[in-house]
Amino acid sequence: MMKNILVTGVSRGLGLEIVKAILADDENFVYGISRLKTKELDELLINNANRFKWLSYDLSNVNDVRNKIFKEFIGVTTPLHGFVNNAAIAYDDIVTNLKYEPLLNMYNVNVFTPMIISKYVIRQFLLHNTKGSIVHISSISVHTGYKGLAMYASSKGALEAFSKNTAREWGEKTIRSNVVVAGFMETEMSAMLSADQKDRIYKRTSLKTPTVTKSVAETITFLLSQKAESITGQNIHVDSGTI
């Protein structure tokens, strides 16, 4: 039977890799969401037309989740089996420069809308009696700390707490929730860092290398699958062994 997975932030970087890794199993169908359609995303959509559907949705919009994503895009009658909360924006600055508006916008995209999506994802799991799996993407910055990432890391820390408690609350219904804590990858998210900054970050890892995007994507795919049926409420670090 086809397994339907909802993935956010599919237009670039890790999101694209996640969709590719999920679609590698031809029993999987992806409902992908992103604000914009990139050239790479368009190619992926064309090459997987029968197993990949896409919706343009801006996650700063907290109000239309049920109507736009669940009623119109996925449809109430479609059983859902997984949700990957990947989309995120980074608000980088030192704490003394913190401003409310960009902070709120980041929290809408990284935390509030994903929490509302989780609400309807769990409802869809319940309606169809599926052993659903939720995977949130967090960041190693939550656990180590980097200059300029306090606000961003706080939003990811919120997701880790949300996931842990979701797992506890819904375990009885065979619904799982886990977090993949990703290290620094060579994606657009870290593009604003200088070579020197990146080098210092990678030196703080056991492997001394950037985290490989594909390795993160494969871990997510594993957590979505029944192979991970006894894993819930966990943070899985895929971070080149950050120390």
Partner: peptide
């Protein structure tokens, strides 16, 4: 509470 959540979802559908 978990049953009531499922009941809500089924009535909503």
């Amino acid at each position: 509470s978990l049953d009531l959540a499922e009941l809500t979802v089924r009535i909503e559908a």
